[in-house]
């Protein structure tokens, strides 16, 4: 294809996106678009899968049968999101095994928040309320993103995430209205998860790469700082309502802006965790790689059985 032709195709492609048309797997797309989507969508899928671990950590110890069932269902939803997102990513011409390989070798990233430990039951509440809350803010705009399979996946994912967020907040309400010990547990969880949740919305706009191109492709509709502000403005009244204190002495309502001002985020901590040196980076990868390696003989057996079955069926047909 000549350069001229490619330019032409790119122009048509950009116009389609500008008209809010969806790009589908068989449509022509610039290579950069494909690669960027593979990166972002697989990162999202990996986050769902790694995100099962910190919550899975409390399944056997959930305090009541009702909570245990809800937690199991929630973690199962996450596995389902992972499956859904891997499949959507595969439409861009990459296999799930290749994507796993990228995760296991550290080439692909997942959301850093899952590198923090879940040390008490209240963390199940805090994760639902704050982490899923921040995830929703990130993800709702993606329901209108330009790549069809991703947009459709996000519609379903967001519905379930918003249910998880309410479920998490409900755990926090119960703890905050419980005994002093329970309330302390809730406050402690908020103290530990607040700042990492703010970091989840990504680096500040002045250092964030990819943003401009992503905006054009509707992979991103608002800047990180705007999303963060939205998250804070939405969450602070929820904390107030249940009598918990946001661990930020600089947090103050700003009448003029109609938003909360907030203190400095420790970006050194953020980069430390992103670069692989958070409290649980090693454990999370060990768990994922371990499950994959220990499962190899099982997957091999399933393949071998399927082959044999096919052969037997063919013989029978003859």
């Amino acid at each position: 294809m000549s350069e001229e032709q490619i330019k032409n195709l790119e122009k048509q492609f950009d116009e389609r996106i500008a008209r809010d048309e969806k790009i589908e797997p068989k449509d022509w797309m610039p290579e950069k678009y494909r690669k960027t989507h593979i990166r972002q969508m697989s990162q999202h899928a990996h986050s769902e899968i790694v995100g099962m671990l910190p919550e899975g950590n409390w399944i056997t110890r959930a305090p009541s049968l009702r909570r245990k069932v809800a937690l199991l269902a929630k973690v199962q939803d996450e596995a389902g999101h992972g499956l859904y997102l891997y499949s959507a990513t595969e439409t861009l011409g990459v296999s799930r095994d290749e994507l796993y390989e990228q995760l296991h070798t550290g080439k692909a990233k997942y959301s850093s928040i899952f590198n923090y430990p879940t040390v008490t039951w209240a963390d199940m509440g805090a994760i639902g309320w704050l982490v899923d809350g921040a995830a929703i803010i990130n993800q709702v705009p993606l329901c209108n993103t330009s790549y069809g399979p991703y947009a459709r996946a996000m519609i379903r994912v967001c519905k379930e995430e918003s249910f998880h967020q309410r479920q998490g907040y409900e755990i926090m309400i119960k703890l905050a209205n419980g005994t002093p010990e329970q309330k302390e547990m809730a406050q402690d969880a908020l103290n530990r998860w607040w700042w990492p949740s703010l970091m989840m919305l990504g680096p500040t706009d002045d250092v964030s790469v990819h943003t401009e191109q992503s905006m054009k492709w509707k992979l991103k509709r608002k800047s990180n700082d705007d999303l963060r502000q939205q998250f804070i403005d939405q969450t602070v009244p929820q904390a107030d309502l249940i009598g918990l204190t946001i661990p930020d002495p600089d947090l103050k309502w700003n009448d003029e802006r109609g938003s909360y001002d907030f203190g400095d985020i420790d970006w050194d901590e953020f980069w430390q965790v992103v670069k692989g040196h958070g409290p649980c980076n090693k454990e999370r990868m060990k768990a994922r790689v371990g499950a994959w390696e220990e499962g190899e003989w099982v997957r091999d057996a399933a393949m071998a059985h399927a082959e044999k079955k096919k052969e037997r069926n063919q013989k029978q047909a003859v």
Partner: peptide, 15 residues
């Protein structure tokens, strides 16, 4: 069975 959550040999068996 709950102990296995997140540690299955494949995503499908995990689910």
């Amino acid at each position: 069975m709950g102990e296995l959550c997140g540690h299955g040999p494949s995503l499908e068996t995990d689910i």
